[in-house]
Amino acid sequence: MGLLAASPTPVWALSAQEPLSLKADAPASYTVREGDTLWSIAARFLDSPWQWQALWQRNPQVASPRQLYPGDVIRLVATDGAPHLALERGRGETVRLSPSVRRAPAREAVPSLPLDRIRVFLESYQIVDPGVLADAPTVVAGQAQRLLSGAGDTLYAHGRLPAAGTTLGIYRPGSDYRAPMSSESEGQVSETRSLGLELHRLGHARVRRNVDGVGELKVLDAVQEIRNGDYLLALDEGGIATQFQPRAPETPIMATILSVPDGVRFIGRHDVVAIDRGRADGLETGHVLQVMRQGERVRDDVRDEWVTLPDTEAGAVMVFRVFEHLSYALVMRASQALAVGDRLVVPSDLREVVASGGAP
């Protein structure tokens, strides 16, 4: 079993349909460092980082690791000409990976992607059915008629509030994401359907008392000023995954970039985007989709007609939070500025496999 030397990009067949392409300068070994992510490590070895698990699976003795830690050494080795990876934990011994190996706090592990870019979307954003706001209590006043409230302040809300001592989240509505619905005749767009309403959590408040439908609450924490019209809701805030494997979807998926919650005009690497597919469509955290820019319309002066150029591959996004009909994804790479309306598809090197029902 020897180390693989750098050479022109080698391609081995994982199956008759799915090629695995190592980078020409893939290292023989790499030591995991602080600041690495699973994506950045995979990108050192592979032209397509979403094939990370496939490269591990070439070694039947070692499962794809769920977590890597600074100091771990990843070695690229070959058996009978087929590449795979071996892992040495920080102390130097080669180990067989299993769910019981190396129990360590999650904060020590290398994250799947840069958490500082997505933390607010993991902790403070929710996508809900717009109907949840119909009967939700709303802030009507601050202490001493203040227009804005913050941590430690008293505020008043009108509506059906839970018992004294209950803690609620304070939310402000954002985008109401909608998708067109086509009528059955001639494909005409007749109406839209809701994909979900975006809520941004501003903080938390505890109910002190209720008097004739008006509640008094104390603001426990706030990341932004609270104002009249903000909503008080008891939404599930736990169970959000931060560790997942970069991989391609196993079913055909075609999505569209709906918006950029940060409000930037030009979308680039490490920007967060909202896309119009979710759990109901088979999306999961860690899924990687390829971004396709729509081809421009140009004039053919010779034939006196307009033609549309082919779509071009423009980057890749990784899904990091999934709701029923909508997801948040982080742009992992971009060869040009991306835009709202760009299509997202299964990566090109796996598209035919997925479409034919083969194993990706």
Rank of each mutant, 00 (worst) to 15 (best):
M1C: 01
A6V: 06
W12L: 14
S15G: 11
A16S: 07
E18H: 10
K23P: 00
D25A: 06
A26S: 14
T31L: 05
T37I: 02
F45G: 06
W50I: 07
Q51M: 08
Q53L: 09
W56D: 10
W56S: 07
Q57C: 13
P70F: 15
A82I: 05
P83A: 04
G90D: 15
E93T: 12
R96G: 08
R96Q: 08
R102H: 15
S112D: 06
P114A: 01
P114F: 01
L122D: 05
Q126W: 12
V132T: 15
A136W: 11
T138K: 08
Q145C: 03
L147N: 12
S149C: 14
Y156K: 13
L161A: 06
A179N: 03
S183E: 09
S185H: 10
L197K: 03
E198F: 00
R206I: 02
R209T: 09
D212S: 04
V223L: 08
V223Y: 04
E225A: 06
Y231A: 03
L232K: 04
A234W: 08
D236T: 09
E237M: 10
A241T: 07
T242M: 11
P246F: 05
E250T: 10
T251K: 11
M254L: 14
P261Y: 01
P261T: 00
V264K: 05
V264C: 01
I267K: 00
I275N: 02
D276P: 06
R279P: 06
R279I: 08
A280P: 02
V288D: 01
Q290K: 10
Q290S: 05
R293P: 00
E296V: 03
D300T: 00
D301K: 07
L309W: 15
L309Q: 13
E324K: 13
V345R: 05
E352M: 08
G358V: 02
